[in-house]
């Protein structure tokens, strides 16, 4: 049986991000806001007057952020895949249980006819 589900026993659909952009913004937003989708296009304007030293530092920060994002995204993707696998398995069991319930009821009904 699924660990969680609705009243009919159908497991809840995994809570995944709506799309890749939502996922990217959510994860990157925790790491480096500059690199989120709404912000990344404004970098040239935002840092137009920075010194070469600051530029180098910022690039290093971005490099680290991208590495961190990639690391985290792989972890999230693994979790998503596992959630989906597990959902599929639970859902399958759920509908089998559902069908079995009706079959059982049908059998009991047939048995009752014989025993009558």
């Amino acid at each position: 049986m699924p660990a969680s589900g609705n009243a009919s026993g159908v497991p809840n659909i995994p809570s995944l991000p709506k799309d890749g952009k939502e996922f990217f913004n959510a994860v990157m937003g925790q790491i480096e806001k500059d690199l989120t989708i709404p912000d990344v296009h404004k970098l040239k304007e935002r840092y137009a007057n920075e010194t070469p030293e600051d530029h180098q530092k910022r690039m290093e920060r971005y490099r680290t952020a991208i590495i961190e994002y990639r690391k985290r995204s792989v972890e999230y993707f693994t979790v998503f895949r596992e959630q989906v696998r597990s959902f599929g398995r639970d859902l399958k069991h759920s509908v089998e249980d559902n069908a079995r319930g009706f079959e059982q009821a049908k059998l009991e009904h047939l048995e009752s006819l014989f025993s009558a």
Binding site: G20, F24, L35, L91
Partner: peptide, 30 residues
């Protein structure tokens, strides 16, 4: 950086989309 990140966004799109497709497939069977 924009080009770098575009790869990551594409990858995330693909990953999330694949998962939704799998969920829909499981659900269709059910």
């Amino acid at each position: 950086v924009e080009q770098e990140l575009q790869q990551d966004i594409n990858k995330a799109e693909k990953e999330v989309h694949t998962n939704w497709k799998k969920i829909a497939e499981h659900y269709k069977k059910a």
